[in-house]
Write a protein that binds this DNA or RNA. Sequence first.
DNA 1: CTTCATATTTAGGGCCACCTAATTATTGGT
DNA 2: ACCAATAATTAGGTGGCCCTAAATATGAAG
Lengths: 232, 232
Amino acid sequence: MNAAASRVLTRSTEDYLKAIYSLGGDAELPVQTAAIADTLGVAAPSVSGMLRRLAEAGFLEHIPYRGVRLTDDGRRAALRMVRRHRVLECYLTSELGYDWDSVHDEAERLEHAVSDDLIDRMAHVLGNPPYDPHGAPIPTPGGEVEELKHVPLADLEVGQWAELRMVSDKDPERLRFLKSVGLDVGTRFQVVARQPFNGPVTICVAGGQPQPLGNELARSLGCAAREPEGAA
Amino acid sequence: MNAAASRVLTRSTEDYLKAIYSLGGDAELPVQTAAIADTLGVAAPSVSGMLRRLAEAGFLEHIPYRGVRLTDDGRRAALRMVRRHRVLECYLTSELGYDWDSVHDEAERLEHAVSDDLIDRMAHVLGNPPYDPHGAPIPTPGGEVEELKHVPLADLEVGQWAELRMVSDKDPERLRFLKSVGLDVGTRFQVVARQPFNGPVTICVAGGQPQPLGNELARSLGCAAREPEGAA
DNA sequence: CTTCATATTTAGGGCCACCTAATTATTGGT
DNA sequence: ACCAATAATTAGGTGGCCCTAAATATGAAG
């Protein structure tokens, strides 16, 4: 009945909605024009124009000079794209031999072209996996997502054991580096040192050499505390 | 070095090149504007405009008021799309449970979004099949296609045994009908009757009831003569 | 409370790909 | 050889989405 439901989304609108969703925002801090422009690599005035159209179509509320917040329709549309992207990443990795560092770009293009039916078939073939290869949760067809409460690796205490649970899929370099030092989703490790002043965190993957990780990288890694290796 | 090689193709140009390729044409009878417009479902003036751009980009030669012929670059680009489409049809059918009547639309959208790498991976997983589910030959990555010399079912003699080799993938209705009467790519049958004045052709699939087929349908089915059932 | 840096929006333009209406070229019949 | 029917092109316009430059709103600091 609403405008949003009847509107057929273009590639561009899909990208905007996904970007706005991923930037989060709440009643206090709506998502700002500049952040969207930066994420999508377009100029700010282009964003202004698109926000007007998306607001008219009912996908978001726009408070001029302050920012935007997705409506329920907008969130639904965004989560549909997130589901597509993550199912595609799973499928391409499991069935077609892609690495976790090369899968993002392919999924980014395909997510605009696949049907919901195809996505569901892919998910079905894989046994409806709950997470993508980077540990990100896959929304259900109905638009539900698990809220994950991970601790940034940078915030773990020295001596603590933990497991890597989630990594951003955006930067292939970073992903290749992580693989090269033995870090994957599910890898257990112990924090063995932490320098102050946002210095590096040093960890030890079970049975490996100490490995220092820069603070910026360490802040981008979502972890969960775990029992020490070998314990019950 | 040429314009064509440096140009990044848009969705639309890909569709035009594919349509022009599929319409064939030769030195005598170049592909005409109206035929392209009809195939793509756009107005003739839209085609005129696009032909000018494609000719400038080096994909085709345009003789005003007569028609167009693809250049080598144009043919290469078109065959790349044909390969994509047919590999996708194979993959979706073999690995994701699509039927031969539902696979066309999905492939039509995906062919613009997949990378060459993904297509080659799909083909590899399937063991590089030579034909798609409708019997159409799959071009190589280098742009070679097998030329098939099929006989329209409508042209077979009464009494003759033959095998269905190729069907158009465009019309789902037609494909569902063929399945329903037991006709698939590879099915052997015998022509048992033929009415004059473009009347129906009646065939018998091994061990089945006589089945009349309308002339228009029978003309669209590519067949190959075969030894009688049971013979060496 | 004014002022200045920063963020955002408006103004004005371009390209792509489509449309309809009007014009022009080609061709087959007389 | 001409004329009507048909096919193709040009003319002129639209919407989507992008851009730069200019104008305007916000908010923090003096």
